[in-house]
Amino acid sequence: MSSAFSQAERLDALRGEIRRIEGISPAGRADFLPFGIAEIDDRLAGGGLAMRALHEVAAAGPDMASDAAATLFQAALAARFARAAGGGQVLWAVTRRDLFAPGLAQAGLTPDMVLYAECRDDAETLAVMEDGVRHGGLAAVLGEAKRADMAATRRLQLAAESDGLPALLLRRRRKAEDDPLAPPSAAVTRWRIGCAPSAPVPYDGLGRARWRVELVRQRGGPPHEWLMEAPDAEARFALFAATADRTDRPAGAWIAA
Protein backbone atom coordinates (compact mmCIF):
# COMPACT_ATOMS: atom_id res chain seq x y z
CA MET A 1 0.00 0.00 0.00
CA SER A 2 2.62 2.43 1.08
CA SER A 3 4.77 1.47 -1.86
CA ALA A 4 1.89 2.17 -4.25
CA PHE A 5 1.44 5.58 -2.65
CA SER A 6 5.06 6.44 -2.98
CA GLN A 7 4.91 5.23 -6.56
CA ALA A 8 2.12 7.71 -7.30
CA GLU A 9 4.11 10.44 -5.63
CA ARG A 10 7.12 9.55 -7.65
CA LEU A 11 5.09 9.66 -10.84
CA ASP A 12 3.82 13.11 -9.92
CA ALA A 13 7.33 14.29 -9.26
CA LEU A 14 8.46 12.92 -12.61
CA ARG A 15 5.59 14.63 -14.40
CA GLY A 16 6.53 17.87 -12.70
CA GLU A 17 10.08 17.38 -13.86
CA ILE A 18 8.96 16.89 -17.43
CA ARG A 19 6.87 20.03 -17.28
CA ARG A 20 9.79 21.98 -15.97
CA ILE A 21 11.94 20.74 -18.80
CA GLU A 22 9.26 21.58 -21.31
CA GLY A 23 9.06 25.10 -20.04
CA ILE A 24 5.61 24.92 -18.57
CA SER A 25 5.75 26.46 -15.17
CA PRO A 26 6.76 24.03 -12.43
CA ALA A 27 4.25 24.78 -9.72
CA GLY A 28 0.85 23.17 -9.38
CA ARG A 29 -2.62 24.13 -10.55
CA ALA A 30 -2.37 27.75 -9.38
CA ASP A 31 -0.53 28.48 -12.61
CA PHE A 32 -3.34 27.12 -14.74
CA LEU A 33 -6.77 28.53 -15.35
CA PRO A 34 -9.28 25.71 -15.71
CA PHE A 35 -12.19 25.97 -18.13
CA GLY A 36 -14.37 24.64 -15.36
CA ILE A 37 -15.45 21.75 -17.54
CA ALA A 38 -13.96 18.43 -16.49
CA GLU A 39 -13.87 16.93 -19.99
CA ILE A 40 -11.74 19.79 -21.25
CA ASP A 41 -9.54 20.37 -18.23
CA ASP A 42 -8.62 16.67 -18.06
CA ARG A 43 -7.27 16.86 -21.57
CA LEU A 44 -5.10 19.90 -20.91
CA ALA A 45 -1.64 19.40 -19.49
CA GLY A 46 -1.76 21.00 -16.08
CA GLY A 47 -5.53 20.87 -15.87
CA GLY A 48 -6.19 24.20 -17.54
CA LEU A 49 -4.73 26.95 -19.66
CA ALA A 50 -1.24 27.91 -18.55
CA MET A 51 -1.19 31.41 -17.06
CA ARG A 52 2.41 32.16 -18.02
CA ALA A 53 2.32 31.21 -21.64
CA LEU A 54 1.56 32.19 -25.19
CA HIS A 55 -1.57 30.68 -26.68
CA GLU A 56 -2.46 30.87 -30.33
CA VAL A 57 -5.92 30.89 -31.79
CA ALA A 58 -6.85 30.62 -35.48
CA ALA A 59 -10.02 30.46 -37.50
CA ALA A 60 -10.88 27.11 -39.06
CA GLY A 61 -11.87 28.60 -42.38
CA PRO A 62 -11.19 31.70 -44.44
CA ASP A 63 -14.72 33.03 -43.90
CA MET A 64 -15.57 35.90 -41.60
CA ALA A 65 -17.75 33.79 -39.35
CA SER A 66 -14.90 31.50 -38.27
CA ASP A 67 -12.75 34.54 -37.83
CA ALA A 68 -15.37 36.08 -35.58
CA ALA A 69 -15.61 32.81 -33.63
CA ALA A 70 -11.85 32.71 -33.12
CA THR A 71 -11.89 36.35 -32.04
CA LEU A 72 -14.64 35.73 -29.54
CA PHE A 73 -12.90 32.62 -28.23
CA GLN A 74 -9.80 34.70 -27.66
CA ALA A 75 -11.83 37.47 -26.01
CA ALA A 76 -13.59 35.01 -23.72
CA LEU A 77 -10.30 33.44 -22.65
CA ALA A 78 -8.96 36.92 -21.89
CA ALA A 79 -12.10 37.73 -19.93
CA ARG A 80 -11.63 34.51 -17.93
CA PHE A 81 -8.04 35.44 -17.15
CA ALA A 82 -9.11 38.95 -16.13
CA ARG A 83 -11.90 37.68 -13.93
CA ALA A 84 -9.61 35.14 -12.33
CA ALA A 85 -7.24 38.02 -11.50
CA GLY A 86 -10.09 39.82 -9.75
CA GLY A 87 -10.99 42.54 -12.23
CA GLY A 88 -7.73 42.77 -14.14
CA GLN A 89 -7.14 44.78 -17.27
CA VAL A 90 -6.54 43.41 -20.73
CA LEU A 91 -4.49 44.97 -23.53
CA TRP A 92 -5.64 44.28 -27.07
CA ALA A 93 -3.27 45.15 -29.91
CA VAL A 94 -5.46 45.55 -32.98
CA THR A 95 -4.55 46.17 -36.58
CA ARG A 96 -8.06 46.29 -37.98
CA ARG A 97 -10.75 48.56 -36.67
CA ASP A 98 -13.75 46.29 -37.18
CA LEU A 99 -13.90 44.84 -33.65
CA PHE A 100 -17.30 45.67 -32.25
CA ALA A 101 -16.98 46.25 -28.53
CA PRO A 102 -20.67 45.67 -27.63
CA GLY A 103 -20.32 42.15 -29.07
CA LEU A 104 -17.21 41.47 -27.01
CA ALA A 105 -18.99 42.69 -23.88
CA GLN A 106 -21.46 39.87 -24.41
CA ALA A 107 -18.68 37.32 -24.09
CA GLY A 108 -17.70 38.79 -20.74
CA LEU A 109 -15.07 41.25 -21.94
CA THR A 110 -16.70 44.47 -20.75
CA PRO A 111 -15.39 47.83 -22.00
CA ASP A 112 -13.86 48.78 -18.65
CA MET A 113 -11.54 45.78 -18.91
CA VAL A 114 -10.00 46.45 -22.30
CA LEU A 115 -7.34 48.89 -23.39
CA TYR A 116 -6.92 48.99 -27.17
CA ALA A 117 -3.69 49.82 -28.95
CA GLU A 118 -3.95 50.43 -32.68
CA CYS A 119 -0.92 49.02 -34.44
CA ARG A 120 0.11 49.49 -38.05
CA ASP A 121 1.62 46.10 -38.76
CA ASP A 122 2.50 42.73 -37.31
CA ALA A 123 5.90 43.81 -36.04
CA GLU A 124 4.33 46.62 -34.08
CA THR A 125 1.62 44.30 -32.76
CA LEU A 126 4.18 41.85 -31.43
CA ALA A 127 6.24 44.67 -29.89
CA VAL A 128 3.17 46.14 -28.20
CA MET A 129 2.19 42.70 -26.92
CA GLU A 130 5.63 42.25 -25.48
CA ASP A 131 5.47 45.69 -23.83
CA GLY A 132 2.17 44.68 -22.31
CA VAL A 133 3.45 41.35 -21.04
CA ARG A 134 6.60 42.92 -19.64
CA HIS A 135 4.62 45.61 -17.83
CA GLY A 136 3.25 42.90 -15.58
CA GLY A 137 0.20 44.77 -14.32
CA LEU A 138 -2.29 43.35 -16.80
CA ALA A 139 -4.34 40.19 -16.66
CA ALA A 140 -3.78 39.19 -20.29
CA VAL A 141 -2.49 40.55 -23.56
CA LEU A 142 -4.23 39.94 -26.88
CA GLY A 143 -3.13 40.53 -30.41
CA GLU A 144 -3.68 39.52 -33.99
CA ALA A 145 -0.95 38.90 -36.53
CA LYS A 146 -0.60 37.42 -39.98
CA ARG A 147 3.09 36.82 -39.81
CA ALA A 148 4.82 35.75 -36.63
CA ASP A 149 7.80 33.46 -37.01
CA MET A 150 9.36 31.14 -34.51
CA ALA A 151 11.70 33.83 -33.17
CA ALA A 152 8.87 36.30 -32.58
CA THR A 153 6.64 33.76 -30.84
CA ARG A 154 9.56 32.46 -28.83
CA ARG A 155 10.24 36.00 -27.65
CA LEU A 156 6.64 36.43 -26.56
CA GLN A 157 6.58 33.03 -24.90
CA LEU A 158 9.73 33.82 -22.93
CA ALA A 159 8.35 37.18 -21.87
CA ALA A 160 5.08 35.56 -20.80
CA GLU A 161 6.95 32.89 -18.89
CA SER A 162 9.18 35.27 -16.99
CA ASP A 163 6.56 37.92 -16.26
CA GLY A 164 3.74 35.54 -15.49
CA LEU A 165 1.19 36.83 -17.96
CA PRO A 166 -0.87 34.99 -20.55
CA ALA A 167 -0.54 36.21 -24.13
CA LEU A 168 -3.21 35.31 -26.69
CA LEU A 169 -2.36 35.68 -30.35
CA LEU A 170 -4.91 35.41 -33.12
CA ARG A 171 -3.21 34.03 -36.20
CA ARG A 172 -4.68 35.45 -39.37
CA ARG A 173 -4.27 33.86 -42.75
CA ARG A 174 -2.40 35.67 -45.45
CA LYS A 175 -4.17 33.87 -48.26
CA ALA A 176 -7.50 32.06 -48.14
CA GLU A 177 -5.91 28.65 -48.68
CA ASP A 178 -3.18 29.08 -46.06
CA ASP A 179 -3.29 27.28 -42.77
CA PRO A 180 -2.33 29.92 -40.21
CA LEU A 181 -1.21 27.25 -37.78
CA ALA A 182 1.11 25.52 -40.27
CA PRO A 183 4.28 27.51 -39.50
CA PRO A 184 6.01 26.37 -36.30
CA SER A 185 5.51 28.42 -33.21
CA ALA A 186 6.64 28.49 -29.59
CA ALA A 187 3.08 28.78 -28.31
CA VAL A 188 2.14 26.40 -25.51
CA THR A 189 -1.29 25.68 -26.95
CA ARG A 190 -2.68 26.27 -30.42
CA TRP A 191 -6.40 26.31 -31.06
CA ARG A 192 -8.49 26.24 -34.18
CA ILE A 193 -12.06 27.48 -33.92
CA GLY A 194 -14.84 27.02 -36.45
CA CYS A 195 -18.59 27.45 -36.48
CA ALA A 196 -20.93 24.51 -36.15
CA PRO A 197 -24.70 24.42 -36.64
CA SER A 198 -26.41 25.21 -33.36
CA ALA A 199 -29.02 23.01 -31.76
CA PRO A 200 -32.55 23.79 -32.88
CA VAL A 201 -34.64 25.48 -30.23
CA PRO A 202 -38.30 24.68 -29.62
CA TYR A 203 -39.30 28.32 -30.27
CA ASP A 204 -38.84 30.59 -33.22
CA GLY A 205 -35.35 31.94 -32.86
CA LEU A 206 -31.72 31.13 -32.30
CA GLY A 207 -30.12 29.11 -29.54
CA ARG A 208 -26.63 29.44 -28.21
CA ALA A 209 -24.02 29.44 -30.96
CA ARG A 210 -21.90 26.33 -31.23
CA TRP A 211 -18.25 26.00 -32.17
CA ARG A 212 -15.96 23.24 -33.24
CA VAL A 213 -12.95 23.80 -30.98
CA GLU A 214 -9.81 21.96 -31.95
CA LEU A 215 -6.78 21.86 -29.72
CA VAL A 216 -4.26 21.42 -32.51
CA ARG A 217 -1.19 21.25 -30.39
CA GLN A 218 -0.29 21.55 -26.77
CA ARG A 219 2.97 21.18 -24.99
CA GLY A 220 2.87 18.19 -22.71
CA GLY A 221 -0.34 16.66 -24.00
CA PRO A 222 -2.13 15.24 -27.01
CA PRO A 223 -4.39 17.23 -29.31
CA HIS A 224 -8.13 16.94 -29.00
CA GLU A 225 -11.37 18.25 -30.40
CA TRP A 226 -14.64 19.31 -28.80
CA LEU A 227 -18.01 20.64 -29.82
CA MET A 228 -18.46 23.65 -27.54
CA GLU A 229 -21.10 26.25 -26.94
CA ALA A 230 -20.21 29.91 -27.26
CA PRO A 231 -19.32 31.75 -24.04
CA ASP A 232 -22.03 33.53 -22.12
CA ALA A 233 -21.89 37.02 -20.62
CA GLU A 234 -19.73 35.70 -17.77
CA ALA A 235 -17.24 34.19 -20.24
CA ARG A 236 -18.28 30.65 -19.26
CA PHE A 237 -17.98 28.00 -21.90
CA ALA A 238 -20.11 24.88 -22.04
CA LEU A 239 -19.78 21.57 -23.77
CA PHE A 240 -22.39 20.46 -26.24
CA ALA A 241 -24.86 18.23 -24.45
CA ALA A 242 -25.12 15.09 -26.52
CA THR A 243 -28.14 13.79 -24.73
CA ALA A 244 -31.43 15.28 -25.65
CA ASP A 245 -33.14 14.83 -22.30
CA ARG A 246 -31.40 17.64 -20.45
CA THR A 247 -33.78 20.37 -21.44
CA ASP A 248 -34.32 21.52 -17.88
CA ARG A 249 -30.81 22.88 -17.91
CA PRO A 250 -29.10 24.81 -20.63
CA ALA A 251 -26.87 22.50 -22.55
CA GLY A 252 -23.59 21.41 -21.08
CA ALA A 253 -21.94 21.63 -17.72
CA TRP A 254 -22.43 24.97 -16.02
CA ILE A 255 -19.80 25.85 -13.55
CA ALA A 256 -19.32 29.32 -12.22
CA ALA A 257 -16.16 31.00 -13.42
Binding site: L115, A117, C119, A127, D131
Partner: peptide, 22 residues
Amino acid sequence: SDLAMLVDQLTVRLGERRVHRL
Protein backbone atom coordinates in the same frame (compact mmCIF):
# COMPACT_ATOMS: atom_id res chain seq x y z
CA SER B 1 -0.65 48.28 -10.96
CA ASP B 2 -0.09 51.62 -12.58
CA LEU B 3 -1.58 51.40 -16.02
CA ALA B 4 -0.53 54.97 -16.80
CA MET B 5 3.07 53.91 -17.27
CA LEU B 6 2.13 51.27 -19.81
CA VAL B 7 -0.10 53.78 -21.59
CA ASP B 8 2.81 56.23 -21.83
CA GLN B 9 5.08 53.56 -23.17
CA LEU B 10 2.59 52.49 -25.82
CA THR B 11 1.80 56.09 -26.75
CA VAL B 12 5.46 56.78 -27.32
CA ARG B 13 5.70 53.67 -29.48
CA LEU B 14 2.50 54.08 -31.46
CA GLY B 15 1.73 57.79 -31.39
CA GLU B 16 -0.99 59.91 -29.86
CA ARG B 17 -4.58 58.73 -29.87
CA ARG B 18 -3.70 55.17 -30.81
CA VAL B 19 -4.13 53.89 -27.28
CA HIS B 20 -7.69 54.15 -26.15
CA ARG B 21 -10.72 52.52 -24.64
CA LEU B 22 -14.06 52.07 -26.32
